[in-house]
């Protein structure tokens, strides 16, 4: 059992972090930073999978590098780039490499990235990918042999299966309905898109209860690097609304003090929502060195 699963099943408030592999072969700096600042502060670290459809090194290699540093990884898997053959193959590879935490994500469309002419695959959706994981765990794959029987695996994996949700989307019910399907497909934990509005999050949590979804939820916390980023998120990032007060506070802060204030904002958000969820997922977008500050500000 992974440490992440262990802590969540004990009901401990759990914090995860996130890194992105480089565009290029120079992976050491990001792994070094993770070792310096994330290792002591979070339980596990997500490695993004060709995030926002901008071509990079794989999540799998980032996970292996984290493990070498003694950091527990969460393998992110998007459905955009691989069909069911490649996804299942990579799931087996991950298990062989000792990776247990896997996160199923639909994945941003290719037009969001830097290879706009690429073919968007989505052979499986995020629900189908969770079903594929469960199937592999049961000892067969998604295919059939010549007689129409399931193919038996020579050794089957065991995962801690995660999924994502956008809790502050304008239309939140379809998000929750899909989350219910993900739980039904075998998801065991949830990491959410960024939340800046505890009231909207409460509304989401109430709907989650109404739909009888019982898996642990880690609220998504994205560090704001300046007021401009807050405006950008409001305009262009689906389902994310930064309240005016936060933007105003960042705008009025001296540039040198912004990271400190931003970490305080994140800490306060975690304090406000701690009672409603089972953990927090910190996305610092390269500002890994402030993770310990956030954890301290959250009083964890």
């Amino acid at each position: 059992m992974s440490r992440l699963q262990e802590k969540l099943s004990r009901g401990e408030f759990t914090v995860t972090g996130e890194i992105g592999p480089p565009k290029g072969t120079n992976i050491d700096p990001v792994i070094h930073e993770a070792g310096e600042y994330l290792k002591g502060s979070v339980t596990a670290v997500n490695v993004t999978d060709i995030q926002t459809a901008v071509m990079r090194a794989s999540s799998l290699v980032g996970c292996v590098k984290l493990k070498e540093k003694g950091i527990e990884p969460v393998l992110q898997m998007v459905c955009r780039d691989r069909n069911r053959l490649a996804l299942q193959s990579d799931l087996l590879s991950a298990a062989i490499l000792g990776i247990e935490n896997v996160l199923s994500i639909t994945g941003d469309h290719v037009v969001a990235g830097d290879h706009k002419g690429a073919m968007p695959v989505y052979d499986l959706d995020s629900v189908g990918l969770l079903q594929a994981m469960a199937k592999l765990e049961s000892g067969t794959d998604m295919g059939l042999d010549n007689k129409g029987a399931p193919n038996a695996l020579d050794g089957s994996p065991k995962f801690f299966k995660g999924c994502v949700v956008t809790p502050c989307a304008e239309d939140v019910e379809p998000q929750v309905i899909k989350l219910a399907k993900k739980a039904e497909a075998g998801a065991q934990f949830v990491q959410t898109q960024a939340v800046y509005d505890p009231k909207a999050f409460e509304k989401f949590i109430n709907l989650v209860k109404q739909y009888k979804i019982k898996i642990p939820i880690l609220v998504g916390i994205v560090m704001l690097k300046n007021a401009g980023m807050a405006n950008y998120m409001n305009n262009f990032v689906p389902g994310v609304q930064v309240p005016k007060e936060i933007t105003k506070r960042l705008k009025e802060t001296d540039k040198k003090e912004v990271p400190k204030v931003s970490a305080q904002i994140c800490g306060q958000l975690i304090r406000d929502m701690k009672g409603m969820c089972q953990g927090a997922h910190l996305m610092t977008l390269g500002w890994d060195r402030y993770v310990p500050d956030i954890v301290a500000a959250a009083g964890l």
Partner: peptide, 21 residues
Amino acid sequence: CSKSLVNGTCGGTNKGKCEVS
């Protein structure tokens, strides 16, 4: 659906519009 998903909306839905445009 720009991604031809079969089990519901993704996180890219934005005020009723698709993340693609």
